[in-house]
Amino acid sequence: MSLAHALLTSLLEQASSGYDLARRFDKSIGHFWQATHQQIYRELGRMEKAGWIRSTPDPDAGRTRKRRYSVLPGGRDELMRWAAESAPLPELRDEFMVRLRADAVIGPLGLLPELGRRRALHADKLRAYRAIEARDFPPDPQASRQRRIHHLILKAGIQYEEGWIAWYDEALGVLEHA
Rank of each mutant, 00 (worst) to 15 (best):
D140Q: 04
F96T: 06
I132A: 09
R119V: 02
R81Y: 00
P90M: 09
P139S: 05
I106K: 15
K125V: 05
M47Y: 07
Y41K: 08
T64H: 02
E91S: 03
I149K: 07
Y69E: 03
I153N: 11
P73T: 01
E43L: 06
Q142V: 07
F96V: 10
A156I: 04
P57Y: 01
R147F: 07
K125L: 02
G157D: 05
R127T: 08
E85I: 09
E78L: 12
A87W: 15
V71I: 05
E85R: 14
I158P: 00
D77H: 07
R118Q: 04
K66A: 15
R76Q: 15
I149V: 10
D94N: 11
P88E: 12
G62M: 08
K49P: 12
K49C: 13
D77V: 04
P88G: 05
G45V: 15
M80I: 15
H37V: 08
R99Q: 10
P139C: 09
L121T: 15
G157C: 07
W52S: 00
R118M: 04
A83R: 05
M97I: 12
A120P: 05
E161M: 11
L79F: 06
R118V: 01
R46I: 07
R65M: 13
P139H: 13
A134C: 09
F137I: 01
K155R: 12
H122F: 14
D94V: 06
T56G: 07
F137D: 10
L121A: 04
H151E: 08
G74H: 02
R147V: 13
Y41D: 03
G157P: 02
Q39A: 11
D103S: 13
E161K: 13
A83G: 05
H150T: 04
G157F: 00
A128R: 08
L152T: 14
I158A: 00
R101G: 11
M47N: 00
R135N: 06
T56A: 11
A128T: 08
Y41N: 00
A61Q: 05
P113R: 02
R135T: 04
H122W: 05
H122G: 03
Q39P: 15
